[in-house]
Structures are given as structure tokens and as C-alpha cells.
């Protein structure tokens, strides 16, 4: 430290608007810099909890759907969650289309929930929109509920053949994830 530290006399500090302003400015700036630094450090601390690179890399899944017979369904895994792929029978398609979409809790038609040219292929997440249980009905012999689609055993949500919510506490239809068919229609890429 040099002896310039001693040059600020009480008079200088008391008088002179400039002195006051400069000193306030310095301290406010120093404290703000600390604040900015603190906030900057919080960013990595928060972002470290977001999905890591290996988890994000697994966010697309390919599923071979060619072997599914009408009336059958398979369970696959997409982002560590169950994915239901179901080939509807003509009767199931008719049933789904017979319902007036406007009367439903979450109005959607079967056509809105399937792809052009593959109206019989219903791809949904196997995650109940109520509290996240896995509904029954995808595997052989499981109850499909009153509406012939899926039935969630946790709190009794009933889904129809287009996996739309018809009865019970779930607020929305089973989610249809982003997916695409490959050109010959045998494989879907989800995500």
C-alpha cells in the first residue's frame, strides 16, 4: 500500500458532491459485480441437473412395427418410458370414428392421432396423463376397460380405441409422440 491511502481528509469526504458520488459508485459497483458473479455461478449449478449428453443422445428410438397383427399391441421403450404401438382392427377404427369428438374431454379424432396412410397404427406413450402410471391393455390378456382401449389400474382412467380419455380422472388423451414411418412403412422412428 502506498501512502496515498492517507490523502482523503475528512473535509474532502464531507464536502464536494463529486467525492460522495464517486465513493458511492465504487461501492455499489463492487457489490453489484459480486452479485453478477454469484448469479453467473448459479447457472451451471442449475443446468447440471438437466439431462446429460448421453441421456439426450438416446432420445430417439426405432421400432419395427411390421409384425404387429390387427388387434395386437406391443410395448417399446422411448426415453425410458413405455411406448404403446397398436394395430387397430376395422371394428376398433369404426368405434373410434363413431364417437363425436366434440363431446370428449380432450377433443381429437382418430385421424388427428394417426398418420396419413397408416390410420390403423396407433402410437401413444404408455403413460397415463393423470399421474403417470402405465395403463393396462397393451399386452395380451390385460383388461382394456369399458371402451376397449386402455385401462389405468391406479385411479381407474378408461381410454377408448383411439387412446382418448373417456372416463376417470386423467385430464387428457394418451400422448402421441413425434414419430415417422420409414418409406416402406415397417419401422417407425420415435423422437
Amino acid at each position: 500500500m502506498t501512502d496515498t491511502t492517507g490523502t482523503a481528509t475528512p473535509e474532502m469526504l464531507a464536502d464536494g458532491e463529486d467525492g460522495v458520488r464517486r465513493r458511492d459508485f465504487l461501492n455499489i459497483a463492487a457489490v453489484s459485480a459480486t452479485g453478477i458473479g454469484g448469479v453467473a455461478v448459479v447457472y451451471p449449478l442449475i443446468s447440471q441437473m438437466a439431462p446429460s449428453a448421453d441421456v439426450l443422445a438416446e432420445s430417439s428410438t426405432e421400432v419395427d412395427v411390421s409384425a404387429i397383427q390387427p388387434g395386437q399391441a406391443i410395448k417399446a421403450i422411448f426415453r425410458k418410458q413405455p411406448l404403446f404401438v397398436r394395430r387397430l382392427t376395422q371394428r376398433e377404427i369404426d368405434e373410434a370414428n363413431a364417437v363425436d369428438a366434440g363431446s370428449l374431454r380432450d377433443p381429437q379424432t382418430l385421424a388427428e392421432r394417426t398418420k396419413e396412410g397408416h390410420r390403423d397404427m396407433l402410437v401413444t406413450m404408455g403413460v397415463c396423463t393423470h399421474l403417470g402410471c402405465v395403463p393396462l391393455g397393451a399386452a395380451e390378456g390385460e383388461p382394456r376397460g369399458e371402451f376397449g382401449g386402455y385401462f389405468c389400474p391406479c385411479h381407474g382412467s378408461q381410454f377408448d380405441t383411439a387412446a382418448r380419455i373417456r372416463k376417470g380422472p386423467a385430464p387428457t388423451n394418451l400422448e402421441v409422440p413425434e414419430y415417422e414411418f420409414n418409406p416402406d412403412g415397417t419401422v417407425i422412428t420415435v423422437g
Binding site: 465504487l26 461501492n27 463492487a30 458473479g37
Partner: peptide, 19 residues
């Protein structure tokens, strides 16, 4: 940023101690 903040802290400290 640290260099900038530390220089500010130095002047702020000097200012506070001058009295």
C-alpha cells in the same frame, strides 16, 4: 470478470479505509 471485480474491490476497499 474476476480481474475486473477484483480491481473494483481494491478501489472500494481503498475508499472505505481512507477515512
Amino acid at each position: 470478470f474476476m480481474l475486473f471485480a477484483t480491481i473494483l474491490a481494491w478501489f472500494s476497499k481503498k475508499q472505505i479505509w481512507s477515512a
